[in-house]
Design a protein around this nucleic acid. Structure first.
Lengths: 174, 174
DNA sequence: ACCTACATGTAACCCGTTACATGATTTG
DNA sequence: CAAATCATGTAACGGGTTACATGTAGGT
């Protein structure tokens, strides 16, 4: 799923400007997809050309005007089709794991810093998911993804907490 | 970490040809990094030009000749420096989670297929990690990453097993 | 006969990122 | 007074992918 299709998905949750779509990526979709402004704005332009979204300008006082996009019927159908066409592939890349793989080549301080950073990142992610969980309680699928995210991140965190001693304590016995 | 630096990491484990480096990405590094031939071969050419690796051709009988690369001292140091410079960032993208987020827009068959595919993918990944675990038992860091991978994937699998009923059974009550 | 493993590479393409540019308003 | 929020966009660049191209040896 590329940025264009993901924008359709974001608009599926309701009409939005490019700016607001970005916010959806940073909250609702944050734990499994991401997109930057420089990817979103051109994507919306293309989608409009293709007739998958329609747009109207909303004039605001004390705020810049914004272009609000809506899914057209074609766009709606296109998104559902894209979902059915997807096989649900995932991609994961982790420099954290790479660093731990080569932990014995790193200084003790670096290893400690890496482990602490990862713990903090995981705790913040769990917090963020918990914070938006309530807003998704009406949607079975959305709730599943939130709880799935929390469960997986919690498992990562617990593993690190239980195994970091082997790297941080002076006693470096396996 | 880009493909060039990851190739240095692969060579850190011992001299290898481009083909063999690819195999390391598919076994040892498979759960946290990946690289294709089209990324590896040009990367090695660049690394050679920069003096970070050296190369010699090994003539084989009944097999094509191969170019075996070794880390130079500069390359070794460059890799350690790159590790220390990395903050350990991760990136995760999942169409599986996206599909589940929009589960109520999908046909029942599609949801079932998606969940089953994900379960199978996770089981195979856990099996693959278990299979290479023994080869890493001497290396504390490598062992940590294997066990971390198993723990996280097992948590994902368990969550799906425990929550899929809400999507696959006819009784669709929350 | 066909597929897989071994072995290396290129060309075209897609896609996304960082950084830049602009500018009002609100919050600290 | 500086920073963040709202709001939209471009330009240059980096990086990786798919598909193609080639050829031997061994297994089913």
């Amino acid at each position: 799923m590329n940025t264009k299709e993901l924008c359709l998905g974001a608009l599926f949750l309701g009409d939005a400007s490019g700016y607001e779509i970005k916010q959806r990526f940073e909250t609702t979709f944050s734990h499994f997809q991401k997109a930057s402004f420089a990817a979103i704005y051109p994507a919306l332009t293309h989608l409009k050309t293709e007739g998958l979204v329609s747009a109207h300008v909303e004039i605001q006082e004390k705020r810049p005007d914004k272009t609000v996009y809506s899914l057209t019927e074609t766009g709606h159908q296109h998104f559902i089709d894209a979902l059915h066409a997807s096989d649900g592939a995932e991609s994961f890349r982790s420099d954290f794991v790479l660093l731990m793989f080569f932990a014995d080549q790193l200084s003790a301080e670096k290893v400690t810093a890496v482990l602490e950073r990862q713990e903090q990142t995981l705790r913040q992610a769990i917090e963020a998911l918990t914070a938006i969980r309530n807003a998704c309680r009406h949607n079975k699928g959305a709730l599943f993804t939130i709880d799935y995210g929390i469960a997986v991140k919690q498992a990562s965190l617990t593993f690190i907490e239980q195994h970091k001693a082997a790297f941080t304590s002076k006693d470096a016995s396996l």
